[in-house]
Design a protein around this nucleic acid. Structure first.
Lengths: 91, 91
DNA sequence: AAACTATATTCTCTTTTTGGAATATTGTCA
DNA sequence: TGACAATATTCCAAAAAGAGAATATAGTTT
C-alpha cells in the first residue's frame, strides 16, 4: 500500500485523537448541528470548537453547509458510528 | 458519556494516528506475526517497531503471546478490519 | 452604512509525540 | 556459564499538537 494512503489515514486518526473532537462526532452522529449548538452543548469556547470542526472536516470525516450566518456540520463517513459503538462495547 | 471513556477512546485513536503503526495493523490483519517478522517487512529499526507495538497494545488494539525468544502479536479488536476497509474505500 | 451575530483565524506558550541511538533484558543453546 | 538472538527500555533533541486570548471575516438587520 502507498505511503500517501497511510498519511491520509493517519490524518483521519489524528483528527479523532482528541476528546473534544470525539464528543463532537458523537453529537453529529445524532444529526446535523450548527456551530453554535455544538459550542453550547460542549460548554467550550467557540474558537476551540471551530478549530476542532475544521480539523475533522480536513480529514474528511464531516462536511459543512452554510445557511446565512450559520454553518451546519454533519458526519460524512458512513462507518463512523459502527466503529465507535464497537469501541464502546470493547471499553 | 463519561470523560474517562472519551480519554480511553482518545488513546485508541492516538495509537492509530501514525503511519508505521497503521502498517503494523495492516500486517496483523493478515494474521499473527512475531516482532522480527514485522521489523523485517516494514524495513524499520527494531526499537521503533517495539515501541509501536507496545503503544498499540496499551490502547487495547493488539495482544501478545510469548514463545521462547519470540513475541507474537495479533489483532484483538474485531471491528478494526471493517473500519479500515471503509476508510480505504473512502480515500 | 453601522451595529450585530456566527464563525474562522492568528499568535504565543506549553505539552506531547516522534525518531534515533545506545543500552538493557530475557530466553536459548553450546 | 558464556555467547548469542529477540525484544524492550531509556534518553534526548526536534517536531507537532494543545489551549487560551485576541482579532478577523462575512452575513444579517436596522
Amino acid at each position: 500500500m502507498d505511503k500517501k494512503i497511510y498519511d491520509k489515514k493517519t490524518e483521519v486518526f489524528k483528527a479523532l485523537a482528541n476528546p473534544v473532537r470525539l464528543e463532537i462526532i458523537d453529537l453529529l452522529l445524532d444529526g446535523e448541528k450548527c456551530v453554535c449548538e455544538i459550542t453550547e452543548k460542549l460548554r467550550c469556547e467557540q474558537p476551540r470548537i471551530s478549530k476542532s470542526l475544521i480539523k475533522l472536516k480536513k480529514a474528511g470525516l464531516i462536511k459543512d453547509r452554510k445557511d446565512g450566518l450559520n454553518v451546519y456540520y454533519s458526519i460524512s463517513i458512513c462507518c463512523m458510528g459502527e466503529f465507535l459503538s464497537c469501541l464502546n462495547k470493547m471499553l
